[in-house]
């Protein structure tokens, strides 16, 4: 008798698990298949004859692209964080029309990245466009700064700067939302308590807001640095003459028809992203520990 009961329950368990397996396995199999494909080809290309993963390191265009991407990431990430914090602080406390303002702040995310790049292209077009007309003093409300129109996409500084501008503009709602969610977990009474104890605005920000916001800040830093490393569309459209790593991968694959080098470059990009993520995680932990100390 007890044996029968036991067998029944095992059968039931199996049936239940079969159901769960049946509805989850296809999904994860699908994702897993892609994972295998991606890893397989990246490793195959990178470690094929001549070891492209090593030999690419001595290529000048790879080194240049790496350096550009590194600066793009290093400047773009804090910039996006700062913009996120400022926007979040602007709409954090409620005022009349706050929800409309918040909705307006979300507009950039509704503009496809490619379209954003197109708009920037239009605004900064050469030789005549709004920005060039503005800088050469054609509008009455702005002083003349330039004698000759500036070809923005012809200089490394401006073309990559415009790519960064596009990236910051389009993605600002994402950073804002994460910081906003972080701010909303902080109790208002905590500020009042600190205020009564004599903490001024700066001290409240330093001792309370900042440490309580570090999880959100660290999330933004990590997500943004990854996004900046892998950015493709903006530099592809706005700075084609000065490739970042993503653009270089496309160039190697489509123009030079060299999937081996492209694969090696792609693998390096993954490794850089991993290293940066690790570094930022470690950094934000250290900073938080410092801020919380008595």
């Amino acid at each position: 008798m007890p044996e029968k009961t036991k067998r029944y329950s095992i059968w039931e368990k199996l049936k239940d698990n079969l159901f769960i397996l049946g509805i989850t396995v296809p999904c994860f199999l699908y994702l897993f298949a892609f994972l295998i494909i991606v890893l397989f080809y990246l490793l195959k290309f990178s470690f094929s004859e001549g070891l492209p993963i090593i030999s690419i390191l001595s290529e000048a265009e790879f080194r240049n692209a790496l350096l550009r991407t590194f600066w793009f990431m290093l400047i773009g990430t804090p910039l996006q964080l700062a913009v996120g914090i400022i926007l979040a602080l602007l709409v954090y406390e409620s005022f009349k029309g706050v929800s409309l303002t918040r909705s307006l702040f979300l507009i950039p995310i509704a503009i496809p990245a490619l379209v954003t790049a197109v708009i920037i292209n239009l605004l900064f077009s050469y030789p005549f466009g709004h920005m060039n007309d503005l800088l050469s003093g054609k509008y009455t409300f702005f002083p003349k700064i330039l004698e000759l129109p500036l070809n923005f996409s012809g200089t490394e500084f401006f073309s990559i700067g415009l790519a960064m501008l596009g990236k910051v503009w389009r993605d600002m709602p994402i950073s804002m939302l994460i910081i906003l969610a972080g701010l909303q977990t902080i109790e208002k009474e905590g500020y009042e308590a600190a205020q009564i104890m004599g903490a001024n605005f700066y001290q409240r920000f330093k001792y309370i807001t900042l440490p309580l916001l570090t999880p959100a800040i660290s999330t933004v830093l990590i997500l943004r640095s990854i996004e900046n490393w892998k950015e493709f569309i903006f530099p592809f459209v706005l700075a084609p003459a000065y490739p970042l790593l993503g653009v270089l991968i496309d160039r190697l694959y489509h123009v030079q028809q060299n999937p081996y080098m492209a694969g090696a470059c792609a693998l390096w990009l993954v490794l850089f992203i991993g290293a940066t993520t690790f570094l930022f995680t470690f950094l934000t932990k250290t900073v938080r520990a410092y801020l919380v100390k008595v």
Binding site: E187, G190, P211, R288
Partner: peptide
Amino acid sequence: MVFQSYALFPH
């Protein structure tokens, strides 16, 4: 002042 929620700093 002591607040209803205590307002202790959680970190």
